[in-house]
Amino acid sequence: MYYDVIMAGFGGQGIQMISQIVALAAIRKGLNVTYLPSYGVEKRGGRTNVTLVIADEEIGSMVSNHPKCVIAMDTIAVDKYKAQVAPKGLLIANASLVPLAMLDRSDIVPLPLRCNDEALALGSAKLSNMIALGAFLQRSEILGFGDVEAVIDEVTPERLKKTIPANLEAIRRGIEIAANGSVR
């Protein structure tokens, strides 16, 4: 098993948070993980990109320009990474911000999710990252809800602990939407 994913968006969308959750859950499952946050000049300008590689074998490259999955939380992320998705790969896009017309590659699987709207419906726009995470879990099939539930406390900073139940709820909602395969 070898799976690489790039998660991208702007600062504050919680990309680091969901990538940390996935990384730790994978480690706990006994998998190898590399976690590469934005590096170099990309650090500037408020963008957040994380490249995660998860494998049951030794991981070579910690960078990927043909990831099996891209989670793009805004239009800039779609612009930058859409072309990189491996053929037959998955492009999870935050359709609350990204026009559907941008998801125009026919050789990959687009999964538009109205992350912000779904999150608001659950009570807070801040849950949009968890909607995307749920969808990723459902489609990538490398980690289950239980794997994530087991590590979310560890990854969540003390001052945000009270948000854990809402986060888990949002992850479940993401899983549910992805399973139905449609934009609500």
Partner: peptide, 10 residues
């Protein structure tokens, strides 16, 4: 290189 310095692994 900065990649080795800044990426994360178990």
């Amino acid at each position: 290189d900065a990649m080795i310095g800044q990426f994360q692994e178990p």
